[in-house]
Design a protein around this nucleic acid. Structure first.
Lengths: 148, 148
DNA sequence: ATTGCTGCAAAACGTTTGCACCTAT
DNA sequence: ATAGGTGCAAACGTTTTGCAGCAAT
């Protein structure tokens, strides 16, 4: 699983004339290990805690490469920071975001793909990615303020 | 048109025990006048240019109230800043965002509403708002780098 | 009279950049 | 050898905050 992702990333780097460095693979591993959604800085901090010496600049840089390589995907939860999540080997899915307790429910629907395909065709638009989030209040009885 | 928005805002403020101040209506007017999408700071700068003396803090504060009041809506175009656009008296619509030239194409589809309604019902979720953006490359032949 | 709002400036926050050194090719 | 990557710290742009004074209720 991890080995496949590494292989994919290695190929991607090679094809793009990007150098293959140990730091980049450290970031890849940390990203795959991270549970849930993370900001680039969260990842940097997590790596620091594991005594990694990879710099913030490199984490930010690598996370962008991983996104291009489609090993992780970028999400927008409306809080002015880039969030990522590993999407390697996973199905496309969208998010219900509870604005009270921060809970995130995932869902997927093939009908959305159809809409996207049609809209792009109608507008001569070539999609690279999209974001779809529904914000609101979840059904949890003790749903209350706290962060992610 | 503007008068209606003012009335709606006034009611909203009153019901929420928020004070009715001239500054807030200055911001409302500037937001309604603004062509296209704007960040809170863009609005502040535009108001400065019109010799308004409303402060940055007040603009940020008021823009949030206008969003709650559903006179403007918040958009996320993945560039780490809150964008707004007047939605008073307008139909819901989504965005195709060209990541090369920054062009924004609007579209709307009732089928999306149906999906949202269904997903929320299935998950016992009470929606307040949602974001749906498709990123990619537009069909413009001379589409090239520049900002919004 | 009492809160809440305002303006200002400073701080916070995630992110990007400049630069000297290093290393994969 | 040489481009490209790295680490560090400083800069950046947007947003938030603290606080003293002001104004809507």
């Amino acid at each position: 699983m991890k080995a496949e992702a590494e292989e994919k990333f290695r190929e991607f780097l090679k094809n793009g004339k990007n150098r293959i460095t140990p730091e980049r693979f450290e970031v890849l591993n940390a990203a795959l290990d991270y549970q849930g959604h993370f900001g680039a800085d969260d990842l940097y901090i997590a790596m620091k805690k594991m005594n990694s010496s990879v710099s913030r600049a490199t984490v930010y840089n690598t996370v962008e490469l991983l996104e291009q390589c489609q090993i992780i995907s970028k999400r927008n939860f409306g809080d002015n920071m880039n969030r990522y999540e590993s999407c390697f080997g996973k199905m496309n899915h969208e998010h219900l975001v509870c604005t009270t307790c921060g809970k995130i429910i995932e869902f997927s629907t093939p009908r959305l793909e159809a809409i996207i395909e049609e809209v792009c065709r109608q507008n001569g638009f070539e999609m690279t990615n999209y974001t779809f989030n529904i914000f609101g209040k979840c059904s949890d009885k003790n749903c209350s303020k706290k962060d992610e």
